[in-house]
Each structure stands twice: as C-alpha cells, then as structure tokens.
Simulated assay, not measured.
Amino acid sequence: MLGIYIGTVVYALFLLSTIRDISSGVYVPALSIYLLIVLTVNDLFLFIYFLNYVTQTVKYETVINRVRFQTFKTMERDFAEIQPLSPSWIQGSSTIIPAQRSDYFQGFNAKRLLEISENNDVKIQFLFPAGQFLLEGTPCIRVYGKEKLTPKLLKDIADCADFFTGQPIDRNADFGFRHLSEIAIKALSPGINDPGTAVLALHALFALFDYRKYHQLPQSILNNKDEISIFSETSSFEKLFDQCLEPIWNYGKQDQYIQATFLEMLQQLKNKDHQHLYLNLFEAWIQKIRR
C-alpha cells in the first residue's frame, strides 16, 4: 500500500511538470488529470481498508486464534504419538560438545548429522529440547563412538546445531504455548486487568494441550539399518503444562472467572485422558484450585 501511495505522489509531481503555457493558452493534460483523480480516490479506499485491517489484526481475539492455529498446524506436521525409547548406546562412554554461543537452541540439521553418523560410525545425543536457551559452554551434545573423535569431526557435529534468537512457532510448537501464556499473563496484569482475554488464551491453551498430551516431537532418528543414530530430548507434557499455567494461575487466582475456567477445563482434560497418563497431574491442579 505504501508503494501505491508513493507512486501516486510521484505521478502527480510529474504531471505538474507537464502543465505549461503555450501560444493558445495553458496546456493541461486532461486525461492524465482524470487518471490522477481515480488514483487518489483509490488511495482513499486503500487507506480505509488499511485502518480496518490494522484494527482487526491487533485485537486479542485475532492474535490468540492466529497463534493457536499456527501452533496446531506445527504440531500436526512435526509431532507423532508418544513412544518412549532409550537407545542402549547412551550408557557408553561419550564426548561432550558445549554450546557454541549463548542463544536459543532451535534444532539441528538431521540430514547432515545422519551422514556424519554413518560415515564415522558415531551416535549423537542432544541433551536439551529445542527451544531451550543455552549459555555458551553449556554441555549440549554427547557423541558416542568406538574410536577417538577428531576435533574436526566434533566441529562438524557442532555446526549442525542451530542457534539463533527468536521464537518462531513454525519451527517449534512449544513457542506457541508460551506466547499464549504470555498473552494471558499480560491480560491479567494490574495495568490491563482483562480476565476475559485471559480466558480466551486459556481456552486456546487447553485446546492445544488436548492434542499435546499424546503427541510429541520424535526423539529418535533412524539410519538406513533402522538403528537409532540420533537421540534428542523433547519437552515433557508435565513440564510444559506447569510452565504455561502456573504463572497465569498466580496472577489470576483471586478472580472467580479465572477460577471457574481453570476448574472446568481441567476437568474436561482429565476426562479425556483415556490412557490415564496424567490423571495425577490434573487431579493435583484441581485440588490446588479448590483449596
């Protein structure tokens, strides 16, 4: 839209230069003037549309729905049903690779790591889930191999880990949970005091947790021989659940609207836990709220 505005202004300036005195009077390019009028009216409609678009996109409801659907889309694409695995080679001797910089660990280049693993007969374990902020020098990767590992090999493995600033939901669904939690916390802050918006964020969070309870990022990546070559830690449901909901409860536990929402959604989530994986977690939360 800004380009159209600038283009209209530039066109008007060029048009001014064509208006001049001639022997028969003042020359005015009528067709060009009419075109300028059409462009000006079009710019006014674009400006009205822009104002409406901005007011709609900054509404909490729109932001919450956008984060919710982005997060769910990422989980559907990347997550699989929970299958606890622990490769036997984890018990062996290993070499530690520290984090190369202080930043968010965003994941790794799986294709490149599989090539390194197969070509050098090594196994690789990531000690932290994607999305974790790590300080430089923190032990991040364990490399298991029968032979002595060269510095070049360790550097090649370290270079496959992605570290950069930001919390992109399309890379890591956990960021979406945290964004919704932050929205609810800000809505409950004394300066805003909007429990209605916090409830909308809570509903979105519980809808995502309903899918998340039986799905997670695959921990293992297999090689051509169907052996586990790469093993990565993933965030647990219980930890993510507490991290997202505990701050919201601490801010809003005195509000009856928040209390009722917590109780209602926790009871629904507990009833839907058909595999009985988190009954103790949900029951503990329900008892805490009732107290």
Rank of each mutant, 00 (worst) to 15 (best):
E136G: 03
F105W: 10
L15H: 10
N224A: 13
I183P: 07
Q100T: 01
A207Y: 12
L113P: 04
S181P: 04
N224K: 12
R20Q: 14
I228V: 14
F177E: 03
E76M: 12
E118K: 11
F69H: 11
E81L: 15
S189L: 08
R66S: 14
N42R: 03
K155Q: 13
L277G: 10
E115K: 12
P195I: 09
L36R: 03
A173C: 06
I64G: 06
D121W: 03
Y104L: 10
E115G: 02
R101S: 11
E136K: 15
K213P: 11
D43G: 04
D156S: 14
Q167W: 07
E147Y: 00
K272E: 08
N109M: 01
Y211F: 15
K239S: 15
T71C: 07
F50T: 13
V26G: 09
Y27H: 12
A99T: 11
E61D: 15
E233Q: 14
R171M: 05
F241A: 13
G25K: 13
L281Y: 02
G191S: 07
T18H: 06
L240R: 15
E147F: 04
W89Q: 08
V26D: 00
N223R: 01
A80C: 07
P247Q: 02
F108V: 08
F177W: 09
Q267I: 11
G196D: 08
K111M: 13
I6W: 11
L31W: 12
T62Y: 00
L114V: 05
Y211V: 11
T8K: 07
Q125T: 01
L2G: 03
S24W: 11
E246A: 13
D210S: 13
L114N: 02
L39M: 15
G3C: 12
I248T: 10
R291W: 02
I157P: 08
E61A: 15
L51G: 12
P190Y: 10
L205R: 09
R291C: 03
Q259V: 05
G25S: 04
V9H: 06
A198K: 07
Q167N: 05
P129Y: 09
V10C: 04
E61P: 00
T18Y: 08
R112G: 08
A80Q: 14
Y211C: 01
P190E: 00
P247E: 07
Y5P: 00
L222S: 12
Y49Q: 13
A201E: 06
